[in-house]
Amino acid sequence: MAKTYDYLFKLLLIGDSGVGKTCLLFRFSEDAFNTTFISTIGIDFKIRTIELDGKKIKLQIWDTAGQERFRTITTAYYRGAMGIMLVYDITNEKSFDNIKNWIRNIEEHASSDVERMILGNKCDMNEKRQVSKEKGEKLAIDYGIKFLETSAKSSINVEEAFFTLARDIMTKLNRKMNDNSSSGAGSQSLRNNTTKLLLRAPLNVDCDTQNTKWILLTKPIDLSGSSFSDMEAMKWRHKCNMATN
């Protein structure tokens, strides 16, 4: 089946309750803003396909499902994430202080090479500001990650934020592939053939030189796919009959 994208990136939103994670998600995926969300209900993830360097990238952006409220985010939420948006509310100092704790959580549960970015949301509400932009920038510098102030309501920097994160993931991915191809056999085929792979981190690629096709060694099984049928079982029965007759 033909795919409508070249890469799939799994991104997460993390931060305290009420900082505007879901609003950012809606602004980016639906270009809409709705103030009536009290907490995140019924939103699992949203999809938007963007284009970077001529490649179609499907961003699958996951929301916390409200489980941040009592600090009960499941470890499963972090699995396979390639990029994480850490969001605080510039009008809420506590949410900013907690960014450090969320970073610690990420270090524990997410892949060690996950791309991260800090967002100070609600920057349209300058009159209620509790966290200066400089403070946000300093924190980001301390951790060596990128920073933007955003407003989901006024649509400020939302596009930029997600595109930046996606681009950083892309850069890391390209670097990884170059590393792999310079050290492994059959190196040339890698860059040409990974494009249609469903990429997940952490991944473990190896080259099947005969088919010049890259295989995910740790290729996980996705039950939602319909990749297997009962054919195998039927073939088995058929062969059995042949062998015994």
């Binding site: 396909t49 499907k58 469903l198 996705d222 796919g225 990749s227």
Partner: peptide, 10 residues
């Protein structure tokens, strides 16, 4: 506008 199909089949 495109129709997304079986993303995870890989």
């Amino acid at each position: 506008a495109a129709v997304e199909k079986a993303d995870n089949e890989e």
